[in-house]
Amino acid sequence: MVFPFVVGIWVTAGILIGFAVPPIHDGNLILRTRQIAFFHVPMAIAMEVAFLMAAWYGISWLRTRQPRYDALSLAYAEVGTVFCVIATITGAIFARTNWGAYWSWDPQQVGIVTTLLTYAALFALRGAVEDEDKKRNLWAVYAIIGLIVAIFSTMVYRRLLPDNATLHPSNTVITSDALNKFALWFNVIGYIMLLVWMAKLRSRFEMASQRLREVQWA
């Protein structure tokens, strides 16, 4: 029962730290609305972690056939999708203040939309299969392939393009001074803990609803 409060205090502290650090420089430019970077970047990293966990628990389900692994896989994918939407929206706000438009089909934006589409398809697939075991198998398989697409489109794709193809700052915060680095990683840890809490919670509801379905059938 301690964990939720640790998360609560940690994330609150993270928000305060994010607002307190000095300006960040991207080349000669001073980034406006830099505070969003301490929310947007951790959200994006937590999203990758969520999809990694979804695929990992998918593999666990395929190996062990424990329904709780499938519930955890579902939970991480769902929370990851929410984080992905948040990262997209905060990224669009950041793009508006720094590049002048909410949406410009920047490679990074293309990548995150591809990821969103992949996971939307994942939920569509889960809804379309009736048999419980078959549903979990197909979900796990698609979650694993979906991870490949997510990694490719958010991390690989942009780096394979010429340097001037994206406006997205690549290593600005990470390579800046120690205070910014600390603020960033503090927030990353905070939001990953939040992710774990939310996903565990979601999987408990999923298990309970599965139990209720079984009772209904019995």
Binding site: A121, L125, V129, V149
Partner: peptide
């Protein structure tokens, strides 16, 4: 692979397009 997945679900044809398009987007780009 996705045809095998979609053939086991309801609404096979439309589901196949829905699950295949996101996955082939990197290739397409």
């Amino acid at each position: 692979l996705l045809g095998a997945i979609a053939s086991q679900a309801r609404a096979r044809g439309s589901l196949f397009a829905a699950i295949a398009v996101p996955l082939v987007l990197p290739l397409l780009v």
